[in-house]
Simulated assay, not measured.
Amino acid sequence: MASTADHLSAQELETLSSKAIAAKATAYCPYSKFRVGACILTQSGEYVQGANVENASYPVGTCAERVAFGNAIVAGHREFKAIAVATDIKPAASPCGMCRQFMSEFTTPSFPIFMYDGEGNYSLTTMGELLPHSFGPKDFSH
């Protein structure tokens, strides 16, 4: 799996991880107390953060990954290099199914996803590994 991260420099990975971990502090999670932070590295070298935002009506809450991608899309970004997702648990949590589908809209199967646990250790996977046989823009004929 290391090859999926080969296009990131050590500095990019360090910044990506520190910003994802820091984003946990901005989470609004009064019900679950489950903090999640995320940070996307865009192809243009910008870092875009997100955190989970809960709601008293549980299904209305938004995950950190979708907040980060929403922030990036609204800011005009369309090409992404990697994402880091950070939680307080061990082992690290992976993006939920809804986030996997959402992220697949804007990424490729080789897109790297770094998942950080509460101690700052990470595991690495790809979009294709998290959501094989995905459905997306390529499935629409125009």
Score class of each variant (00 low, 15 high):
Thr87Ala: 15
Gly128Glu: 07
Tyr116Ile: 15
Ser141Phe: 04
Ala5Cys: 05
Ala84Gln: 03
Ile89Cys: 05
Ser141Gln: 10
Ser134Tyr: 03
Arg35Ser: 07
Gly45Gln: 01
Lys138Trp: 01
Tyr58Phe: 08
Pro59Leu: 15
Thr126Met: 04
Ile21Ser: 03
Ala56Pro: 00
Cys63Ala: 14
Gly120His: 00
Ser9Asp: 05
Phe102Glu: 02
Glu65Arg: 00
His133Glu: 08
Val53Glu: 02
Phe135Ala: 13
Tyr58Gln: 08
Lys138Asp: 01
Val85Gly: 04
Lys81Asn: 03
Lys138Ile: 09
Ala82Arg: 11
Leu41His: 12
Asn71Ser: 06
Ala2Thr: 14
Ser110Gly: 09
Arg78Pro: 00
Thr15Phe: 07
Pro109Cys: 13
Val53Met: 04
His77Phe: 05
Cys96Glu: 02
Asp6Arg: 09
Ala72Asn: 06
Ser110Lys: 15
Asn71Thr: 13
Ser18Asp: 04
Thr42Pro: 00
Ala22Gln: 04
Tyr31Ile: 12
Gln43Met: 10
Gly37Phe: 02
Gly50Ser: 07
Glu129Gln: 14
Lys19Val: 11
Pro112Leu: 15
Gly128Phe: 14
Gly120Gln: 06
Thr15Glu: 02
Val67Ser: 08
Gly120Tyr: 00
Ser123Ala: 10
Lys81Tyr: 03
Ser3Arg: 10
Gly128Gln: 10
Thr107Asn: 03
Cys99Val: 11
